[in-house]
Write a protein that binds this DNA or RNA. Structure first.
Length: 158
DNA sequence: GCCAACGTTGGC
DNA sequence: GCCAACGTTGGC
């Protein structure tokens, strides 16, 4: 059984449409610089797990589709690039601090599933999204995943 | 733009 | 190690 996650991104930085446009619809999920998110990414995200793609800090925040984890976690190259935005002077190749995975686009939903939609469903009260909303990589349990998928499938394309 | 939540920094 | 100050996130 693959694990389930919620990955957040500001669409102005990197949107689900950007992912879908990548060669082989596959891109690197990088730039994670929060230790709790890092720990999930490094220690618990597994090849073939599925993730909700969540757009934050935008006109219509919410879950916009699904992506699949198509690599094992590996050190985020950006931490070693002195001129890049993600440089970390304390990280070394022998002792990397930050990690990335590769994601492949699976599906873009017909409509955005907003936090308001999710608050209205019984059983989603304990989602990380509501308990610890700022975390950029969050586990989603099987029941939560299935409820949100059912809602997404019930929506007619606009 | 506001503001609550919360992570990080740094002096002591 | 404590904790105040500060910065960032992110929904509204």
């Amino acid at each position: 059984m693959p694990g389930h996650w919620l990955f957040k991104s500001e669409p102005g930085e990197y949107s689900i449409a950007d992912l879908a446009r990548e060669p082989r619809k596959t891109g690197r999920w990088d730039g994670i610089r929060n230790y709790q998110a890092r720990n999930f990414l490094r220690d618990e995200v597994k090849l073939n797990d599925l993730a909700f793609f969540y757009h934050s800090s935008c006109k219509q925040p919410g879950i916009v589709g699904i992506a699949k984890i198509v690599s094992a976690p590996y050190p985020d190259p950006g931490q070693f690039l002195p001129d890049g935005p993600y440089f970390d002077s304390k990280a070394t190749p022998a002792a990397p601090r930050w990690y990335s995975v590769d994601l492949q686009h699976v599906e873009t939903f017909a409509t955005v599933i907003t936090p308001g939609d999710m608050r209205n469903l019984d059983g989603l009260e304990n989602m990380y999204l509501f308990k610890q909303g700022r975390l950029s990589i969050q586990p989603v349990n099987d029941q939560e995943w299935q409820q949100i998928m059912a809602l997404a499938k019930s929506r007619a394309p606009r």
